[in-house]
């Protein structure tokens, strides 16, 4: 379990990293981005009951597109930019400077849509993880970003059946122009990396109290 102080520091740090990422997103989309208060949860996934799993992040229950950036090796995990599929056409149109119509909403996704979301995710996740690496004073190695389309509920099932039973989840919801919900950013860390991160947070806490 995280102490209140550890959670508060992690949340604030994440808030800063996500804030930087939101600025970039706003620049790309030419729209105001509104962020929710970030949530920081240290989870023992296998101990969550189905209701707790469902309430964790409701957006994960729908059909979603996720761009993930795997980082490692000393400090390892996976950062994900998760996106409800009903928003994809809207965001693609914004990125490409095209007009969005209801017909777009009903059409199927194409390679261009996936490519746009993947590149957005790449920029956002690099911004957040770069901040994290700077905090930890280490260079993070990344794999090429992956994009995956998950059917309804599939992402949640994968998450909760993950071999890594202990996960630190940092997540934030964001929306465009106060209306169109865009999705969330979620970072999962390995157990060793959680301990490493918490050590760093404790150092920050001690410095604050000196």
């Amino acid at each position: 379990m995280l102490t209140t102080i550890q959670e508060d520091i992690l949340k604030e740090l994440y808030n800063v990293f996500v804030g930087e990422a939101a600025n970039l997103l706003s620049e790309i989309l030419q729209k105001r981005i509104v962020l929710s208060v970030p949530k920081v949860t240290l989870l023992s996934l296998h101990e969550l009951n189905p209701v707790e799993q469902e309430n964790l992040t409701p957006v994960l229950n729908g059909t979603i597109l996720s761009t993930s950036l795997k980082f490692g090796s000393v400090f390892s995990g996976r950062a994900e930019f998760i996106f409800p599929t009903e928003q994809i056409k809207y965001v693609t149109a914004l990125c490409l400077g095209e007009e969005y119509t209801l017909e777009d909403e009903e059409s199927t996704f194409n390679d261009e849509d996936f490519d746009v979301v993947k590149e957005l995710g790449n920029i956002i996740l690099n911004s957040i993880m770069g901040g994290m690496g700077s905090l930890l004073e280490m260079k993070l190695e990344y794999d090429v970003p992956q994009i995956v389309l998950h059917s309804a509920g599939e992402y949640g099932r994968t998450l909760f059946n993950s071999e890594e039973s202990n996960l630190l989840l940092l997540y934030v919801n964001f929306n465009i122009d106060d209306s169109k919900v865009l999705g969330l950013i979620l970072i999962k860390f390995s157990l060793e990396s959680i301990e490493f991160l918490i050590q760093k947070v404790d150092e920050i806490s001690r410095d604050l109290n000196e």
Partner: peptide
Amino acid sequence: LSADVQAAVREEVLAAGAIKFINKPIN
């Protein structure tokens, strides 16, 4: 032209011979 914001990466590519490092997106 990269999304990677890490200073170490910037230094590495400049040391490798790139003449400039710019973070995405272009503005």
